[in-house]
Every structure is written in C-alpha cells, then in structure tokens.
C-alpha cells in the first residue's frame, strides 16, 4: 500500500513538473543559437534553399566575413539593416561569428537556370577568365581564384550566389555606393568600367555555375594584384 502511495506521489510530481515545464524556453549555449539573428535571412543549418537576395555565408573564408561584419558595423559597407543589427558588437565577437560561418558546411544549392545567347556567354567568359588588359580590367579569376572559389583569407568566392545578389553588388561598386572611406578601392576601379550588359552577363554566368573546389591560398595571387588589392590583404593581416 505504501509503495502504491509513493508511486502515486511520484506520478503527481511528474505531471506537475511536465505541466510546469511545457512552456519553458530552452536556449542551447551554442554559436548556432547566437547567430539566429543572422540565419533568419542568410538561412541556417536546417535550410539550404537559395534565397532570392541574401547571400550564403556558410563556408566563406573567415577573413572575408570578419571584414564585411566590421565594414557594416562601422558604416564603411553601406547597408543600414546590418549596421543596426551589429552596432553594439565587439571585434572579438564578430570574429567568432565569422569563424562560425566559415566552418559551417552546408550543401550548395543547385545553380540557377538562365538561357543565354552565345554572344552573352562569350562576353561573360572573357570578363571572368581573361579580363580586358587594354582597359586594365583584370579577369575575375585573377583575384578570386582560377576556380572562382576565392583566395584566403579575405577575397570572397563568386559561386553559389544568386544573380540578384551579384548584380546588386557589382552595381553598388560601379556607383561607388557599396563601400566608402577606403580609396583607392580595387573593386570600384574595376567595376566602374563595366557596362550594364557586362554586369548582367557576369552575374548570369556566375549564378549558372555549379560550386566546385576550394578557395586558393594567398600565394596564388600575383604580386601585382596583391599590391592592387592591398588593403584587403592588409585588413586580414591586421586581424592576426
């Protein structure tokens, strides 16, 4: 009888506990939980589909991500929603955000499908892989790696991004409104020479390509371009 009574008491206690505990919010002590404010747009571990605009962060190099976070916060890369979100964050914490996303492994989305005329493809391929030496426009691949997957630690890869995002960024560079306070800026110098057709062709061809390979080491960047992209590299040196 006593046993039954104890069992009954335990049962009551359990029910009470369950009822009391149903509404408690359990917060894991992880970076994944801390970056929820980011992953609402940039998609998290459970979502891999492509968003129309917000760029993928997973697997991008840490130096690049850290630089962008600082630029947004400090108003150098102009995008008020990011500036507001990051305004009270320390460099140390932003570095942890950058590290988290750089180590995040997510499958890449399928490439976007566009029909492109042969001429347009030829134009895009020329800009991406050969550049226009007479106008002093280097190819994309000269700085972003022969496989366009970026160069460590701070030059971003160009694949796995949507056409909308690539177009917006190139146009931002062209108009000089993407970044400020750091001149000369190598991407501004390059992009301001591109036409609408050039930008559209590049964005389409990049968004059509499947993602393959890994980012390249800094040694792959020619000394001349290393000088030209100086401040990108300088910034990544600064953070060591």
């Amino acid at each position: 009888m006593f046993r039954v009574f104890v069992f009954f008491l335990c049962f009551i206690a359990c029910v009470a506990n369950v009822n009391g505990g149903t509404t408690a919010v359990i917060v894991p002590d992880t970076m994944a939980e801390r970056v929820r404010a980011c992953t609402i747009c940039h998609t998290g571990e459970d979502k891999i589909e492509r968003d129309a605009y917000y760029p993928r962060l997973a697997g991008k190099s840490q130096g690049y991500l850290f630089n962008q976070l600082r630029h947004f916060r400090d108003g150098r890369r102009i995008y008020p929603p990011m500036a507001i979100l990051l305004e009270n964050m320390s460099d140390e914490y932003l570095q942890e955000f950058a590290q988290y996303f750089s180590l995040l492994q997510l499958p890449y989305p399928k490439p976007e499908q566009f029909s492109m005329q042969a001429e347009e493809i030829a134009l895009a391929e020329r800009l991406i892989y050969s550049g226009i030496p007479e106008k002093d426009i280097p190819s994309c691949s000269a700085c972003h790696g022969d496989n366009l997957m970026g160069i460590e630690p701070a030059i971003p890869g160009l694949l796995g991004l949507s056409r909308a995002y690539i177009t917006a960024q190139l146009n931002g560079w062209r108009g000089g409104s993407l970044m400020r306070s750091r001149t000369p800026e190598c991407m501004y110098e390059v992009a301001k020479q591109l036409s609408d057709d050039d930008v559209n062709a590049i964005a389409k061809l990049l968004a059509r390509q499947p993602v393959e390979g890994k980012s390249r080491p800094l040694s792959e960047l020619s000394p001349e371009l290393r000088k030209r992209c100086g401040h990108q590299i300088l910034l990544s040196e600064e953070m060591k």
């Binding site: 801390r34 929820r36 747009c41 140390e92």
Partner: peptide
C-alpha cells in the same frame, strides 16, 4: 558586448 556579457544572444530583424 561587455566584459560581463561578452557573447550576447540577439533578436532577428
């Protein structure tokens, strides 16, 4: 971010 709360959680926009 403060010395006493170096890794705050955040609210999404």
């Amino acid at each position: 971010t403060t010395q006493g709360n170096p890794k705050p959680y955040g609210m999404p926009p």
